[in-house]
Each structure stands twice: as structure tokens, then as C-alpha cells.
Design a protein around this nucleic acid. Structure first.
Lengths: 124, 124, 124, 124
DNA sequence: GTGGTCTAGACCACT
DNA sequence: GTGGTCTAGACCACA
């Protein structure tokens, strides 16, 4: 099991993002156990402390809960919370700046759609 | 003159981005002089070295040229180059990842358009 | 039967504290039998080992005695011993640090009394 | 410079508490720089990462702010925020449980006052 | 100079 | 088995 890390962002952040993606994609459902710190560390050839840091972030975000001596579990409602919060955060914080950049560069909605963004017609 | 800096990206990068935005917006035109390093440093309460680093990046990108003893000037064709390069870089590098995030969050082109993205009809 | 455990202190310690409280409150009197390990484990959804560890602490503190084949019983004089020891421990160990914190925060005896602490007039 | 650490709580937590105490006591005022991570690590014979963790907690609590490349500084209003929040937290969360314990042990306000708690008469 | 991150390896407490 | 903490030492980006 090998993975390539983007070297701009810290590994623990990328790990956190992977788990978030797995929750969003339904690969990890509420109540599911996360792979143990040691397991992930071994799989990805990482120091356990790095993995721990990623998991701690998830705990701080209330997406994951610790059960003492047992491991880490996806909290109830984690996916819903993510969908709501991340969506909100994107539209309020990131989008305005991004939109400004796109306008400056003359990139339009059509350019993006041509390049793969979902339009409501694609929704199941 | 006070500015708030983002915490995540280095200040010199944010400075560089400000100048790029000014060139794209036509505030700085080719042949125009950039404000001097010491001027910017004073205005923004920054270490001159930080400002220098930002300017050096612009020189490396050939958007700005140093004229010894005179200062820094926007190069000819800077805006055109920017429009092309930044657009390319966005569509090739950033967009695929962003698009994936948007799909996960269920954000569609329509959501973005409603929130202000230009569509081709808007173009002058 | 569901109970919420504090996250900071080990479960076996919290279990021990529950029994101590029951002895102090007179719910468990000397000579009374403690509920069996397996009973508690089932009620609280715990690993029997965890319950055992709590009970063992009580045995070590001589608040409870094991009668082979019969179970665990509150020792004679357990409540008196507790009143003395815990009181002593609080006043010598915890109180000095707590008092320092309260002074830093500007919390006075009056604040606490207003918030429910017993004053000698309340004693039966 | 030697300090003894309580070995029940992690060092980084104790470090955090020391800084909080210094802010409450006015030893560190808003705008003051905290001693650098390396400095503290050297003084206390600690791993820089341990100190870092303590400082990061303070940043997360908004008591301290990072200035990139310069160091950590006490935020404006940190002391006020602390006085309010810690006081609130104590009275709402810790006090009810503590009060219950005190009642069980028969410890009264008079006992505590005799043992050093401030009463409003002591206030300047 | 500052803080941030990571590795390698160890020990501990809890379930 | 689980996660938490710490050390020792290294390298990097930033100002």
C-alpha cells in the first residue's frame, strides 16, 4: 500500500482529508471504527504520532469519537454535519475569493461545466 | 494603512498575489513602476526582506523587471502572460481537485452561478 | 441503563467513585453486598475486567472485602474511614491548588456560598 | 532553572496552565511576547515539540497569537477573556460536582475559609 | 532568529 | 489490543 503525499500540505492534514472524504463518500459510516493508529502508520509507512495528530483533528471536529482502550469511531451524524458545514464554509469563505479570481481570469461557468463540474441535470 | 494577512499562506505570497491582481485589474499597466520596497514595507508594517521576496517572485515570473537604480516596472505583455498562465494553471492543477470536492459536497454549477460566477452571457 | 462517563478520568476510577459516593450517602451500609462484577458489567456495558479493577481498588482501600464464593461486601467502619480519609486528602492535597485557582479567578467564599456550599448553619 | 512536574497530567498541559496563570497574575500582559519555544525547551529541559503543543493549545484558545517568523504574543483581551471564561466554567461545570463531594464529606464554607479561601472582605 | 513537521523508538495507562 | 505522551535529533519555511 503506497500513497503519494502532496508535499505542500502536512501529511496529518492530508490524512484527515482522506478520512473526511471516506465519510462523505459513505465508505466510513457512523459507528464504524477507523483503522487503528498503528495500522495506518504501518500501511502508510508513517510515524504513529503523525497519524495520531490527524485523528485528533477529527476528534476536535466532532467527526470521530474516542472509546477508551477500544479505538476511534465515526460519530453519529458525522456525514450530515460535514455536508452542511463544509458546504457552508466553502460557499461563504472560499467561494467569494475564488469567484473573484475566476472573473479576473475570465473563466466562466461554461468553462467549468465543460471541464466536468456537475450541473443539477446530473443529479440522480 | 492596515491589512489583514491570511494565516495559512506566507505573506510574501500574498503580496505577490496582490500585485498580480492589480495587473490583471489594469490598476498596474505595463511600464508602470511598482511602489518601492521600502514604501511597501512601511505601509504594511513589514520587514523589507519580505517585500523583496515578493518582488523577486514577480521578477522570476517575468511579470516585473528590475531597472537598476530606478526600481521595478511591470513588463510588457505581463497582463497577457498572466491571463494565459494563471488560467492554464487553474484549469489543469486546481480545478480537478476542486471539482472533486464540489461533487462530494453536492455543489453544482447552478449553486455557483446563483452565487455570482460569471456565465458567458455576462461577458462584455 | 446508560451512564455517561467522563472522558478525562479512567472508567474504573469513576466506578470506584460511584461506590464511594453510595457508601458516604448511606445507600450501601457496612455488611451490604456490592452488585456482582458481571451484573455491573452488563448494566453499564463494560468489560468485566474494568469492573474488577474498580472493585480491587476498593479492596485495597479496605472499604470492601472479598468473601470467597459469595461476593464483595462493605467492610465495617467503611463510611467512617472514608469520611476521615477523603476529607483529609481533600484538605491537604486538593484544596491548596484549588484555592490558588479561585484566588486567581477572584472567586470568593461568598460566591461559593451563594452557589450552594454548606455553611455550618446548614448542618443538621 | 528546574521545575517539578506533576506526573499525573501531561507536561504540555502544565505548561499551558503556567502561562495562563502568568496572564491572570499580570506577569504576561497583552501584546507581550511569550518566551520562544526553543528557550522554554532549553530552560525546562524539554523537547521543543512538547512546548509547541502547549503553545498551540493557547493559540486554539485565542489567548495567544502567532506572528509568522516572529513568535507568539498574548492577544488583546486575553486576561479578561480568561477571567470570564474560566470563572464561568468553574462555577457551571466543576463547582456543582465539587460541592456535592464537599457536602458528602461534611466540609463547610467555614472549613475552607479557615483554610485560606478569600472572602469578599479580603478584596482590595 | 521564529515556529512547523516528521522520524525513530520508547514507555505508559486503559479496556 | 487501543491511544497518549515524551525524547532526541533533524530539516524546512518564514521574517
Amino acid at each position: 500500500m503506497t500513497v503519494t503525499w502532496h508535499d505542500n500540505t502536512p501529511i496529518y492534514r492530508q490524512l484527515r482529508d482522506r478520512v473526511v472524504a471516506m465519510i462523505l463518500d459513505g465508505v466510513l459510516k457512523q459507528g464504524d471504527a477507523l483503522p487503528s493508529v498503528r495500522q495506518v502508520a504501518a500501511d502508510f509507512q508513517l510515524n504513529p504520532i503523525t497519524v495520531s495528530k490527524a485523528y485528533q483533528e477529527l476528534v476536535d471536529e466532532q467527526l470521530v469519537e474516542k472509546r477508551r482502550g477500544l479505538g476511534m469511531y465515526v460519530t453519529d451524524g458525522a456525514r450530515t454535519m460535514l455536508l452542511h458545514n463544509e458546504r457552508e464554509r466553502f460557499l461563504k469563505d472560499e467561494w467569494p475569493l475564488l469567484n473573484q479570481r475566476l472573473r479576473r481570469l475570465g473563466i466562466t461557468a461554461e468553462d467549468l461545466i465543460r471541464d466536468g463540474i456537475a450541473s443539477s441535470g446530473d443529479r440522480p
